[in-house]
C-alpha cells in the first residue's frame, strides 16, 4: 500500500479523534445531568435518569445513530451528518458515563463523608472537596475504557456518511480494490490511537499518587 493511501487514512483519523473527543466531552456534561437525576430525591428525575441510561445502554449504537440521523430532519432540524453522528455518540456515551459516575460516587466509603460532616463541612463542600475527587480517582480506569470504547464505536458513523477513518478505508478499498491492506491499516491506526489513550490514562492515574482507598 502506498504512503499516499496511508496518509489519507491518517487524515481521516483526525476526524475520528475529533468526533470521539467531542462526543466524550459533550457526553460527560450530559452524564453529569443524568447522574444528578439518578441520585436526586425527586422521583421523576430519578426515573428519567434511569430510563435514559437503560435505553441508551440497551440499544445498539448503530440503531441509535440511524434513528437520530432520520429523526432530526423529520422534526425540522436539518443538520449535517457530522452533527447527527456526534449527537448519537454523545447520548450513548453519556449513558455509560452516568452509570460509571453513579458507581464511583456510591463507592466512596461513607466514613470519609462522615469525617467531613464532623468537621462541619456543608453538604456542598463535602461533595466538592471530598466525594468528587475520590470518585474521580476510583472511576478513572472505567472512564478511560469508555473513551477507548467510544473511539472504536465512532467507526459506526461511517453508515451515516461521515468520512472518518473507517469510511475512508471503505471508500479507498472500493476504488483501489485492496481491502486487505486498507482495513488492516485502518485497524492499526485505531490500535495506535487507543494505545496512546490508554497510556495517557495510566499516566494520569500515576500522577494521582495517593494510592489505595
Amino acid at each position: 500500500m502506498s504512503w499516499k493511501l496511508f496518509w489519507l487514512l491518517v487524515e481521516a483519523a483526525r476526524l475520528t479523534v475529533l468526533l470521539s473527543a467531542g462526543a466524550i466531552a459533550i457526553g460527560f456534561l450530559i452524564a453529569c445531568l443524568v447522574c444528578a437525576g439518578m441520585l436526586s430525591h425527586n422521583r421523576v428525575a430519578r426515573g428519567a435518569g434511569r430510563l435514559f441510561v437503560s435505553f441508551f445502554r440497551g440499544t445498539p449504537l448503530l440503531v441509535q445513530l440511524l434513528l437520530i440521523y432520520y429523526l432530526l430532519p423529520s422534526i425540522g432540524l436539518d443538520v449535517p451528518s457530522e452533527v447527527a453522528a456526534i449527537t448519537g455518540m454523545a447520548l450513548c456515551t453519556a449513558a455509560y458515563q452516568a452509570e460509571i459516575m453513579r458507581g464511583g460516587l456510591g463507592a466512596v466509603p461513607s466514613g470519609l463523608l462522615e469525617a467531613a460532616e464532623m468537621t462541619g463541612m456543608s453538604a456542598a463542600q463535602t461533595f466538592r472537596r471530598i466525594r468528587l475527587p475520590i470518585a474521580f480517582k476510583l472511576t478513572l480506569p472505567a472512564l478511560v475504557s469508555e473513551a477507548i470504547m467510544m473511539l472504536k464505536s465512532s467507526s459506526l458513523v461511517s453508515v451515516v456518511g461521515v468520512i472518518e477513518l473507517t469510511r475512508m478505508a471503505q471508500d479507498l478499498a472500493a476504488s483501489t480494490y485492496r481491502p486487505l491492506e486498507l482495513y488492516a491499516a485502518a485497524g492499526l491506526i485505531y490500535l495506535v490511537i487507543n494505545i496512546v489513550v490508554a497510556l495517557l490514562g495510566t499516566g494520569l492515574e500515576a500522577r494521582l499518587r495517593w494510592g489505595r482507598i
Binding site: 477507548i148 472504536k152 464505536s153 467507526s155 459506526l156 473507517t166 485502518a186 485497524g187 485505531y190 487507543n194
Partner: peptide, 8 residues
C-alpha cells in the same frame, strides 16, 4: 480489543 468490530 483495540480495534473496532466493524473494521474486523
Amino acid at each position: 480489543r483495540g480495534t473496532p468490530f466493524l473494521v474486523q
